[in-house]
Design a protein around this nucleic acid. Structure first.
Lengths: 221, 221
DNA sequence: TTTTTCCTTACACCATCTGTAAGTATTTTT
DNA sequence: AAAAATACTTACAGATGGTGTAAGGAAAAA
């Protein structure tokens, strides 16, 4: 059974977490000495780390990075809701998932289960049919070739790949790019589609994106 | 095994190079379509580019510059001209080393091995003292903040962090940026140092880089 | 003080990304 | 078949960011 190491300075919360996890069948333990945290965790070789981002001595972010630099993971970050926006949004700090406190028991277990499963066999790439897409860097792979997409190209293609082979409406894409489903200027979206198609053609990916007239687009396959 | 892409218009030479490299255990392939060369190479994501500077259609110099601007490298220039001016020109354009034709087999392989070692990508994060640096993406982390460095900034900071707290000479940095230890234009290096320091200041990292007068720079800590 | 070394700022060039505009092509409807 | 609606493409221009050059200022050493 998976071993989970908890880093949490609030002792009540700590005991609570250990209890929940052990009852769920995990091997759970907590760090109580907050010196050289990364070192300790590394020695314990956990299958998952539960890390509170608000620690007294050392920044949770630094610990997270230190762990990742040692190849340890996955890491599930615990944070209060108000700090989430500021600190975690769009940040590549190496954490694999995050959870806002106070946390619901079921949600916590779901996240952990998900994360453990993901870490077993998840390459971090999305299958687009005839190609692969790295959702973090927007790098497109086909065979031995690769290509870096622009931000707009990446967002569109990722949405299409995630919903493949279903239709993604134009208003959905519009909201993705400009944060509004107002969908005022449809031409801008079309231009971006043209550019994406042109880019795909560089890897000999022809006719991947199908137009559904009056609705939106979808990825073949 | 490392993938090497060859750009050489002389078909005999091309086959010869492929043969040598493949027998040496490399994955070697050549560009045969001399249209949009930089684009092709970029898509192939090579570990090293072997570039003949005398090409029929497009100037090898232009290709070299284009590749470097996309962060592709290292580049080993092949030249039959033995004009020193041209070669220095090439190196200053971003080539990482050069070789005169006709080339000795052993020397070619030695240069390649050397270059590949120099450009090996590293895993994980480098501890810079008050910050962390991702050596692959040149992302700078401090606490909850992160920042993407430019190519030059990243190269310099990475070198400093790797040798911390030792001194990195200016000629070393010059070679890192422009592929030559000639250290011709020291001002360009200083400007890049200024820019790096300014960028570090954005994360409240003051006085991290110390100047060792007459020698070079080093990272405090 | 004088000289050497280092730092900073402003400028110009280039590449990339992106939305706008205008015209073309395709499909649907009448 | 013609008209209308929808989708596509191309060219242009503004914005942004990275870079080397040039020139002058600042700091340290002689």
């Amino acid at each position: 059974m998976a071993r989970i190491i908890i880093v949490e300075d609030d002792s009540w919360m700590r005991e609570e977490l250990i209890d929940i996890l052990q009852k769920a069948g995990y091997e759970a333990a907590a760090i109580t000495d907050f010196h050289d945290i990364a070192q300790q965790i590394a020695a314990l070789a956990p299958d998952l780390v539960l890390l509170d981002i608000n620690l007294p001595e050392q920044s949770g972010f630094d610990i997270c990075r230190s762990l990742k630099s040692r190849g340890i993971g996955p890491i599930l970050i615990l944070t209060s809701r108000d700090k989430l926006q500021d600190e975690l949004h769009g940040l590549h700090l190496g954490a694999d998932d995050y959870l806002t406190k106070p946390c619901n028991r079921d949600r916590l277990l779901a996240r952990i289960q998900n994360l453990l499963r993901r870490f077993e066999s998840q390459p971090g790439w999305i299958d687009g049919g005839g190609f692969w897409l790295d959702p973090n860097t927007f790098t497109l792979y086909k065979g031995s070739q690769s290509l870096l997409l622009s931000a707009n190209e990446g967002k569109i293609l990722l949405a299409l790949a995630q919903h493949r082979p279903e239709i993604v409406t134009k208003s959905t894409l519009s909201e993705l790019l400009w944060g509004t489903d107002q969908y005022i200027d449809e031409n801008a979206l079309q231009v971006n589609l043209t550019r994406l198609r042109k880019t795909l053609r560089q890897l000999n990916l022809e006719n991947q994106i199908e137009t559904i007239r009056g609705q939106g687009y979808r990825l073949r396959g």
